[in-house]
Amino acid sequence: MFGYLQPFRDELKMKDNTLYKSVYCGLCRSLRRDYGIKSSLTLSYDCTVLAMLYLSLHDTPCNVTKGRCTVNPLKKCMLCSCDGEALSFSGAVSVIMSWHKLKDTMNDSGFIKKAAAAVLRVFLKGNYRRARKKYPLIDEYTSEMMEQQNDAERNGAGIDRAADPTAKLISRLCESFSPDAAEKKTLAVFGYYVGRWIYLMDACDDLEKDIRKKNFNPFIAKHGEDIRETMKYCNEVLNMTAAQLIMAYELLELHRFKAILDNIIYNGIPMQQKKLIRDRYDKRNKHRDYYPALDNSE
């Protein structure tokens, strides 16, 4: 996964910052314990968010304890641990998705990236096998997603169809967090739009490179190589996805981490969009009129 789903830290209270880090570190520890030491290399912000979402939907006891960083034993950190599946499930998602992404990189990229991906794959094989054994469904959903995505991209799909496989994967994963039928539906819708948002953010991120290398990118079809117009369009598409995501999010009953998750949804998402769409292209091209491009009054 890509690390777009993050909190906007300046708006987080210190206490919530500590809690967020504790989940990240707790997930790292859980990965190492469940799937092997190397699996913590796959740790990402997105899986931390998944873990927090899972934990927030349940009342199961969850503790934050003082501990030492497993990577740097000289450093103290806070570690979140819990009864139940949240951390080991999210860890499995992390390992399995990384594994499949590496396979994708091996098929699509230039020589150096291919070689690096191949090496990493061998490195992570044992970890992947352990995760797959514990959660075979995650592996099944993920391979299905990769296949459908490759298919869609090969056939020059539109935005909706291209984003659909990733969206469906996250939807299925989120849906499994709750046994309650109504909540499952809400989680399915929420997960769908989160997956869609992540996929589209990644597509937006790769836009310039894809134009240059003539790779598939769902955003190119509308405005071709006109980056300015395409960025404006990207933002609209992302906004609409985020609006739907928020509507589903507001129906969830969260027992914990609400402040952090609220921050991610209401502050983190717009901030990431801004970073990607405004800052990067503004810095690179120094086109000040990218601001008016995002102005409603145009």
Partner: peptide, 14 residues
């Protein structure tokens, strides 16, 4: 008694 919620725990820790 019952387990502390992790938020209680944080304030306890601090």
């Amino acid at each position: 008694g019952g387990a502390a919620d992790c938020c209680d725990c944080i304030s306890c820790l601090i």
